[in-house]
């Protein structure tokens, strides 16, 4: 039988990786429990929040062990979640030895993100498509593309410096508005509102909202509330960013918007 400490550390490490890449609380809790059970630990407790994991195993024995992890809300990485899910499936059907599982876990954690220029391009592409879907014409979509791509460049630059989320969202949406309004002012025939709406889509808190709902649905009210607050604050920051630029624009041009 495997040592409690190693099994627990595998389980918690997997949960950590899942949570860090944006899985919902229920899935993390479930995965940790299943891994512990797969390695024949019967006596355990797991408590997961949206930014922390608390777990203990075999409390009544000599090799009792407990672990606490703090995990900041991070960037979504769906590929890693899918890979970790596959790994935990294999562990549960006893296809993996413990060292093997640790090695696979490291592999899952080091799945790379897409290359930067690719991300910039697709951020623009997504923005352009949304600009079109929400009623823009081709020209509006083109402006959305430009603004969205610039936004992603800006976000990448900021993420290296660990800027607060408020600042990122406010300045991000302000940048988008600025670009669209500038192109509108120099005479491009665009509906600047459609272009702006398309380009703020990468900032809009769709993930936070969805995760929050699913946490609530599974009865994890605390984690649901944390994500919900995140979603509402993000929406608020976007509104502030867009609003402040429009105000300044109106003043500088004399109210003729």
């Amino acid at each position: 039988m495997a040592v409690t400490k190693e099994v627990l550390s595998l389980a918690v490490e997997t949960g950590d990786a899942l949570l860090r890449n944006g899985a919902e609380v229920y899935r993390v809790e479930d995965t940790v429990m299943h891994i512990l059970e797969a390695y024949e630990i019967e006596n355990y407790d797991v408590y997961v929040l949206s930014n922390g994991i608390f777990a203990s195993a075999n409390e009544d024995r000599d090799d009792a062990c407990s672990m606490v992890r703090h995990i900041p809300l991070g960037k979504m990485h769906l590929g890693r979640i899918a890979a970790l899910n596959q790994l935990s499936r294999e562990i549960c059907s006893h296809e993996c030895t413990l060292p093997e599982a640790f090695r696979r876990l490291e592999e899952c954690k080091s799945i790379p993100t897409n290359r930067q220029w690719l991300e910039v391009f697709f951020c623009g592409m997504g923005s352009a498509c949304f600009g079109y879907l929400f009623g823009g014409a081709f020209a509006d979509a083109a402006v959305s593309f430009l603004a969205g791509a610039l936004l992603k460049l800006f976000l990448n630059r900021l993420s290296k410096r660990r800027t607060s989320k408020f600042i990122t969202n406010i300045f991000g949406s302000a940048l988008v508005t600025l670009v669209s309004l500038f192109l509108y002012t120099i005479g491009l025939p665009i509906l600047y509102d459609k272009a702006i709406i398309g380009a703020i889509m990468p900032l809009v808190p769709g993930i936070a909202l969805t995760t929050s709902i699913r946490d609530f649905f599974n009865g994890d009210y605390l984690s649901g509330a944390i994500h919900m607050i995140d979603a509402v604050l993000t929406a608020f920051c976007i509104a502030v960013g867009v609003g402040s630029v429009i105000t300044v624009y109106r003043f500088s041009i004399g109210g003729a918007l």
Partner: peptide
């Protein structure tokens, strides 16, 4: 168009 948009965003979140 919506399919393209969704795929673009899925790529941003590094979907397989």
């Amino acid at each position: 168009v919506c399919m393209t948009a969704t795929i673009s965003f899925a790529l941003l979140f590094a979907a397989p």
